[in-house]
């Protein structure tokens, strides 16, 4: 356990250093990425706001715009993070990097946990910058609670990682499922948008049950309560926080178990390094 933990931090350190070197070396691409992302998102949000004003008059356009922006940011975060386990894993198998990681004495799960954490933190920074820019443009307010915001981000990360491990396990053996996973990733963006902009309590029971099964719904609801509504510790009393905790445990148990099983199976089938 200690060996794995020290391995986790060592791999994380390696990933951070690699990421920083690449960001520094390709700083122009990183900055341009944020500018293009900001431009596209602000366009989307303005379109969304004008639509929202017409159909729903109980919220102002600005509020709707910020909700949409937050939903999109959470959705994009989920999209990127699960992408590491799907298209990312496929790409690693194609280049041979996956085999290198598999030969690390810390194991594939430890490596992927560390990689996904680094990627998640990196995404929080770039998406956070974009959210702040959008908020400044629209004149909205962001409430970053010093305890609740990191806690919710951590739980969302854990939830998505668990889900990612489940999908990644399938990709390890059946590489083509990485393409199907793209649909799941897009669904997550849609769900995060729905969770932050719609009142899901009015939905039919079966639909509510289905969306709460997926890892992003309750995470988006809690993050919206904390960041936009400024609920602070009040989020802890909401049923969504409870669902977030439960789904976090369930997705991680299912995900990591399945990933281990599929990793063993891929060693039997010899599909680890093949695409």
């Amino acid at each position: 356990m200690t060996h794995m933990l020290s391995g986790f931090f060592l791999v994380m350190k390696a990933e951070v250093v690699r990421m920083l070197i690449i960001m520094r070396r390709y700083w122009f691409a990183s900055v341009i990425g944020i500018i293009i992302g900001y431009g596209m998102l602000i366009g989307l949000i303005i379109a969304f706001m004008s639509q929202r004003e017409r159909v729903d008059e109980y919220t102002s356009g600005m509020e709707g715009g910020m909700e949409g922006a937050l939903g999109l940011m959470i959705g994009l975060w989920a999209f990127g993070l699960t992408g590491l386990f799907t298209q990312g894993l496929q790409g690693m198998a194609r280049t041979g990097e996956l085999e290198q990681v598999c030969m690390s004495p810390y194991g594939l799960v430890t490596n992927f946990f560390a990689r996904s954490l680094v990627m998640a933190v990196n995404s929080i920074f770039s998406l956070g910058i974009m959210l702040a820019l959008i908020s400044w443009t629209l004149g909205g307010t962001l409430h970053i609670h010093p305890v609740m915001a990191p806690l919710l981000a951590m739980l969302t990360f854990a939830n998505l990682t668990g889900f990612g491990f489940m999908v990644g396990g399938l990709v390890l053996v059946f590489k083509q499922t990485g393409q199907i996973a793209m649909i799941l990733r897009l669904i997550m963006i849609g769900l995060a948008l729905l969770a932050t902009t719609q009142n899901m309590g009015e939905w039919p029971l079966l639909a509510r049950f289905m969306v709460h099964l997926l890892p992003i719904t309750d995470a988006a609801l809690c993050l919206k309560m904390s960041i936009l509504d400024g609920a602070g510790y009040g989020v802890l009393q909401h049923s969504s926080f409870f669902f977030l905790l439960v789904s976090c445990v369930i997705w991680n148990v299912i995900g990591v178990t399945l990933f281990h099983f599929m990793e063993d199976w891929s060693r039997d089938k010899g599909t680890l390094g093949t695409y």
Partner: peptide, 11 residues
């Protein structure tokens, strides 16, 4: 840098 990265991965 590669050696530092893969060295970390190998402990």
């Amino acid at each position: 840098e590669n050696l530092a990265y893969f060295g970390n991965l190998k402990g």
